[in-house]
Amino acid sequence: MAASAHGSVWGPLRLGIPGLCCRRPPLGLYARMRRLPGPEVSGRSVAAASGPGAWGTDHYCLELLRKRDYEGYLCSLLLPAESRSSVFALRAFNVELAQVKDSVSEKTIGLMRMQFWKKTVEDIYCDNPPHQPVAIELWKAVKRHNLTKRWLMKIVDEREKNLDDKAYRNIKELENYAENTQSSLLYLTLEILGIKDLHADHAASHIGKAQGIVTCLRATPYHGSRRKVFLPMDICMLHGVSQEDFLRRNQDKNVRDVIYDIASQAHLHLKHARSFHKTVPVKAFPAFLQTVSLEDFLKKIQRVDFDIFHPSLQQKNTLLPLYLYIQSWRKTY
């Protein structure tokens, strides 16, 4: 089996927390979720979201995140109150960019949308954001926290390059993509939290790379249903696996070995980020709550012996909000 052949990389499970039942964490995340308004986002309300009498641009960002990046939404709820709305805006910006690729039928249209967001970032730093909910909220975040323009532009530029429907040539190319998107998002989150620390940035770099790799793995069944495969070609070739094997949902050992190798790289990034947690300011830990969902996925895929098409991998963990709150309460990542 794939797991038994390579099992030495995987460390002990961390979500089991001995003695936790003896201490009762304060009510927090679930209460916040219940208090949030929840009407559906419609095209009509989106168009009017920044106008008078609408929910408001902040509510639009929150709803977009809740629907399109639920794990990011849950993590954002546990940030300090003064930072929450800015991170909602930042993550909503990322969602807007991420959904361009799947929402257009022609690359030219995707490039036009990316050009809109490039100009939007430029206009935000000229205090002239367009009348668009996410743009307005992002402008507020930039003004409030003096966010670095370079990180925002890196996210747009990398998403634009990724409009080509090509597999990553190697794991390094996937890591570079993750660094310029997910890690950049974390650098900006640290700025919102008021953290300027080399060790925190180092952790953000590795956690962002782990996030990018896990996202690529999780999306494999969806991409396969659209006749697309984006997994690193070098690892596929190493194990003699073709793109057609993934399109046919082949579950042979060599296919699972490909998934094992890729998942192991995410695991190593996560492990390395945690190896120097004592040197990272505690104030930075809330920015890294996504490690909970990353670890949850890596454990699940290990349990199914790296069968990327196993139905259990597509099921939401209903206990994730609780695990996130516990992680926040324990002040760790």
Rank of each mutant, 00 (worst) to 15 (best):
L289F: 09
H59K: 11
M153N: 13
T291C: 09
E173W: 03
K278Q: 15
L268T: 08
A89V: 03
S83V: 14
G53K: 14
R68Q: 07
K119D: 13
F88Y: 10
N317H: 11
E71Q: 07
R150P: 06
I235D: 03
I136R: 14
L320A: 05
I207H: 02
A92E: 00
Y125D: 06
H267Y: 09
L77T: 04
Y60Q: 06
F276W: 09
Q115Y: 06
S312Y: 10
D165S: 15
L319I: 13
R249W: 10
K283H: 12
E82N: 14
I171E: 02
F306L: 02
H223V: 07
Y177K: 04
D252R: 13
S264P: 00
S242G: 06
V87H: 13
R226N: 15
H131T: 15
D234K: 02
G194I: 00
E295C: 10
S85T: 13
S312Q: 08
L174C: 01
I301A: 07
E106A: 12
L147I: 09
E160V: 15
Q115I: 05
P129L: 08
F297K: 02
D123V: 00
I207S: 02
Q265I: 10
P133A: 15
L238K: 14
L270F: 02
F297I: 05
D234L: 02
Y323C: 12
L188V: 07
W329L: 11
H239T: 01
S264G: 13
I326A: 14
A219S: 15
K161T: 12
L294C: 09
T279I: 13
F88H: 10
I109S: 12
R144N: 08
L231M: 11
I262H: 02
Y260I: 05
I235Y: 08
R226C: 11
V280E: 00
A219D: 05
E244A: 04
E71I: 13
E63K: 10
G110R: 07
S312R: 11
L319C: 11
S85Q: 13
F93W: 15
M233T: 06
E173T: 07
A81C: 14
T332L: 15
A54I: 13
I235V: 13
K154N: 11
A287C: 07
Q302I: 06
K331M: 12
S76M: 06
D201N: 05
R226Y: 12
L185F: 07
P286K: 06
G56K: 15
Y323L: 14
E122F: 06
S83L: 11
L147S: 01
T291D: 01
W139D: 03
D123L: 10
P232D: 01
Y323S: 14
C236I: 12
G208S: 01
N176A: 15
K228W: 12
F276V: 08
I124C: 04
P281A: 05
E96N: 08
K299V: 10
L163W: 10
K172G: 12
W139G: 05
R150D: 05
Q290F: 09
E71F: 06
S85F: 09
N94P: 00
D197I: 01
S205H: 09
K119Q: 12
H277D: 12
H310A: 10
L62I: 13
D69N: 05
S103K: 05
I171P: 01
F93G: 01
L65Q: 05
V104A: 14
R303H: 12
R226E: 08
R227V: 10
P221E: 08
D157G: 13
G224C: 11
E191M: 04
S312D: 13
R330G: 06
G72I: 07
S85W: 14
F306E: 00
S205I: 01
V241Y: 01
N94K: 04
K149N: 04
Q290M: 09
A210M: 01
M233A: 08
D245R: 08
K278F: 08
N162F: 07
C75A: 12
Q132H: 12
L74F: 08
I192V: 14
N94C: 05
V214H: 03
F88T: 12
S275D: 10
V95L: 08
D307V: 02
H269P: 03
I259D: 00
V304F: 08
G212H: 03
W139R: 04
R169K: 11
L238P: 03
E106F: 08
I207M: 06
T57R: 13
W151F: 07
R68G: 09
Q302G: 06
L174M: 08
D123Q: 14
P133T: 08
R227F: 13
S275A: 10
K300P: 00
K67V: 08
F309P: 00
Q302R: 07
F297M: 06
I207L: 13
W117H: 03
R330C: 10
A219G: 14
E179F: 03
K278L: 14
L238A: 12
Q327E: 06
W139A: 09
L97C: 09
C61V: 13
M233V: 07
P129N: 03
D164I: 13
I207Y: 02
A98F: 03
H202V: 05
Q290I: 07
K166W: 11
E158T: 13
M153S: 13
E173Y: 03
K271S: 15
L64M: 09
A203F: 01
A210I: 02
P80S: 10
L147M: 07
L231G: 01
W151K: 05
V142E: 03
K209V: 05
L294I: 13
T181V: 15
E160D: 10
V134I: 14
W139Y: 14
E137R: 04
Q243H: 07
L111I: 12
D261R: 08
K271E: 13
P133I: 06
L217I: 08
C216A: 12
R218V: 05
T318N: 12
N317A: 11
H310G: 00
I207F: 03
N180G: 14
H131R: 12
Q302M: 07
S184V: 15
L322F: 10
A89D: 02
A273I: 00
V280R: 00
S76F: 04
L322I: 14
K283L: 13
E71Y: 07
Q251F: 13
K283I: 11
L231R: 01
G72Y: 08
L111M: 08
R248K: 09
V282C: 08
L324E: 00
L185I: 09
E295F: 07
H310D: 12
W329V: 09
P286I: 09
L185Q: 08
H145E: 03
E137C: 07
T148Q: 15
Q243V: 04
I308S: 02
V100I: 15
Q132Y: 15
G53A: 09
D164K: 13
H267T: 08
L190T: 03
K149S: 05
E63Q: 14
A89G: 07
P232M: 00
M233C: 06
N146H: 15
K154A: 06
M233E: 05
P133H: 15
P311N: 09
W55H: 15
D58M: 12
I207C: 04
Y325F: 12
